[in-house]
Design a protein around this nucleic acid. Structure first.
Length: 299
DNA sequence: GCTTAACCTGGACGC
DNA sequence: GCGTCCAGGTTAAGC
């Protein structure tokens, strides 16, 4: 691995962001931190290096892109820097004081605008799985089928193209920790190939419920995965994926009456409506703070 | 409209 | 060392 000093980092000022919280909050699975405290990841065919500076400061960070340098738009778009986070905190805390502790702890946590295809397939892996294993599976998938991207830190891999996934070997995928999800990935890639080009991307323009309905119509995608895709790559800021953790948080904070009830479609919708009625247009962002607090416990 | 079982697999846990 | 359980769900069948 070459020294990271062989290139120059740009500096972004006056931006409310916490890179660690954002990149490790369970929305994206392929970011890794180098020994120098630089976060490395890819967006389509661009590799990105990010570093919080100075250590822990939430209003300034360093960045660079590879192989084409200085692609600020790619970075700003991915991190959704256009969203005025600090205005949202005030709104949320006025309606729900219980959020104040999480917004203080994870100040600068942002929802990402990921490449839709990577987000779509990464969350196929999330069913009955652990975050550590999801990360490992998605990494293996990219390394096996994705295009290499050269960086000063070594080779990173773009997320695989649709036709590579459609033609993937099921036995190989199963061996790469995808297990019973392997045939689902291949079938979904073939379904997407049969759609008009950029169909997934076009859902960014659709209203939330319409986009979700399109996703749920695909075999293998239920309400939770559809909401993850809507929230983490399709700009649906009010989408609130209801998983086992969110269900527990909701019962504890807002709806003790739902304790012990199965997560049927009716209960799922009821929980989602609860978050939307409290936090409105950016309910998915508010939810992410309490989700991360839950995942990290009292640390 | 709800419950249940099946679907891979690795790590945590109890014994 | 071994057995059991569980983990960011989805689907289909049975009631």
């Amino acid at each position: 691995m070459k020294s990271p000093s062989s290139f120059e980092m740009n500096v972004a000022h006056d931006v409310c962001i916490d890179l660690r919280a954002t990149l490790t909050s369970g929305q994206a699975f392929r970011w890794r931190e180098s020994a120098e405290g630089i976060w490395l990841g890819t967006v389509e065919r661009t590799a990105i290096a990010l570093r919080q500076s100075p250590q822990g400061a939430p209003r300034r960070f360093e960045w660079q892109t590879f192989p084409t340098p200085n692609q600020w738009r790619v970075v700003a778009d991915y991190l959704r820097l256009e969203v005025p986070l600090e205005d949202l905190y005030a709104d949320w805390e006025s309606v729900e004081p219980s959020l104040a502790e999480a917004t203080r702890r994870f100040r600068g946590l942002r929802i990402l605008r990921q490449p839709p295809q990577e987000c779509f397939f990464a969350f196929q892996c999330a069913t009955c799985n652990t975050v550590v294993k999801i990360e490992r599976s998605v990494k293996k998938l990219a390394e096996r089928y994705g295009e290499p991207i050269e960086t000063p830190f070594g080779i990173l891999h773009a997320f695989p193209a649709l036709d590579a996934l459609a033609n993937a070997d099921e036995a190989v995928l199963r061996g790469d920790l995808w297990g019973y999800r392997a045939p689902r990935v291949i079938n979904l890639a073939r379904h997407l190939l049969a759609k008009p080009p950029l169909w997934l991307e076009s859902l960014r323009e659709a209203p939330y419920l319409e986009a979700k309905a399109e996703l749920v119509a695909l075999h293998g995608i239920g309400a939770k995965i559809a909401d993850c895709i809507c929230a983490f790559c399709l700009d649906k800021d009010s989408a609130t994926p209801v998983d086992t953790h969110i269900r527990q948080i909701t019962c504890r904070l807002f709806r003790p009456d739902l304790e012990g009830k199965s997560l049927t479609p009716r209960v799922y919708d009821e929980i989602a409506r609860e978050w939307h009625s409290r936090f409105g247009e950016y309910a998915g962002w508010a939810q992410q703070y309490l989700f991360l607090a839950e995942m990290q416990g009292g640390r």
